[in-house]
């Protein structure tokens, strides 16, 4: 690809992603409402779509307030980290055969590294707020992320073994005959659960937990700084959905009556819907239950999956 083409890809991806992240405000509110037998926002603009604009304008015009007791520099940096790391993670995702920002040969590791750095925004945000509830949220966030990070990585190793590459384009190509969700169902389930925990969405929104911690790590944030956390969360949903599609559901592969990019977007939006459905249906577990579930159930499960996949892969290679 030429440099100009590269720049256009970056701009296009950035533009589409930020719009999706903002549009998800509307998608989530409408879908949640429909699943709760309500109608949701349907007044501003066609189908209520302008609620996105109204929300954004409201956030922009709010007072940009930093509490006097907060640690100012860290307080300001924290929300930028979450949005930044998630946006950077998108560079490795192959949206279509030729649309990828950076075709890294260690793409998967890059994704895992970036999602680990994302934890810092929660920890720093909660710490800099200098508030007991925020600190509790930050603590919870840190331990939850560490626990779920471990087997998020391990659950993907089965995919790497089968495709023989860390490059996401190669992984998609390896699924031309059979999607990895068929050969790696355990890996898929564990990855998706870890992804929900990683984006700290309901039912694993332990660091926020409105009912216990009054919004936890971002209790002191308002205005566009809170908006950055919000965008980071929605970008995270999009990222995990896109990764799930890329790794387990054949990425842009699909019957040829639709272009690859459309297949990719359709599949991604399906998983975004699943994320919202999870929020609508499942209650939040207790904090110790979450950690226990991670270390005692999912980790052994994913290790067993890794061993069996490895054994089968070796056997197939020999025979």
């Amino acid at each position: 690809m030429s440099t100009a083409q590269h720049i256009w890809t970056v701009i296009g991806v950035l533009f589409v992603l930020l719009n999706i992240a903002a549009g998800l405000i509307w998608v989530e509110r409408r879908l949640l409402a429909l699943w709760q037998d309500r109608l949701g926002p349907n007044r501003a603009g066609p189908l209520g779509l302008l609620i996105v604009l109204a929300d954004t304008l409201k956030l922009f015009f709010k007072e940009d307030w930093i509490p006097p007791f907060a640690s100012k520099a860290i307080f300001v940096v924290a929300p930028a980290i979450v949005a930044g790391t998630v946006l950077i993670s998108f560079v490795i995702i192959p949206f279509a055969p030729n649309i990828v920002v950076a075709d890294l040969n260690i793409g998967l590791l890059f994704f895992l590294a970036m999602s680990s750095i994302g934890v810092y925004s929660i920890v720093l945000g909660g710490w800099a707020s200098n508030n007991k509830y925020s600190l509790l949220g930050a603590l919870r966030g840190a331990s939850q992320m560490i626990a779920y990070e471990v087997f998020m990585g391990l659950s993907l190793m089965g995919v790497v073994m089968l495709s023989g590459s860390f490059n996401l384009g190669a992984i998609v190509e390896a699924q031309r005959d059979l999607w990895f969700v068929v050969t790696q169902p355990v890996g898929f389930l564990v990855f998706f659960i870890a992804g929900v925990a990683e984006t700290h969405r309901l039912p694993f929104d332990i660091p926020e937990a409105e009912s216990e911690l009054i919004a936890g790590f971002h209790a002191e944030y308002s205005g566009m700084k809170f908006g950055m956390f919000f965008i980071g969360e929605y970008l995270g949903i999009t990222l995990i959905s896109a990764m799930t599609v890329t790794l387990f559901f054949g990425g842009w592969l699909g019957p040829s009556f639709l272009p690859p990019l459309v297949w990719f977007i359709l599949k991604t939006f399906f998983f975004i819907g699943v994320f919202i459905l999870l929020r609508a249906s499942l209650p939040r577990p207790r904090y110790d239950q979450l950690i226990e579930y991670g270390w005692k159930v999912l980790l052994p499960l994913v290790l067993a999956n890794l061993m069996i996949t490895g054994a089968v892969a070796l056997y197939l290679k020999d025979s």
Binding site: W35, R38, L39, S281, L282
Partner: peptide, 12 residues
């Protein structure tokens, strides 16, 4: 999750 999804088609 399935039962919640079915609420999509309920009367609002």
């Amino acid at each position: 999750m399935w039962l919640v999804f079915l609420h999509l088609f309920r009367k609002k």
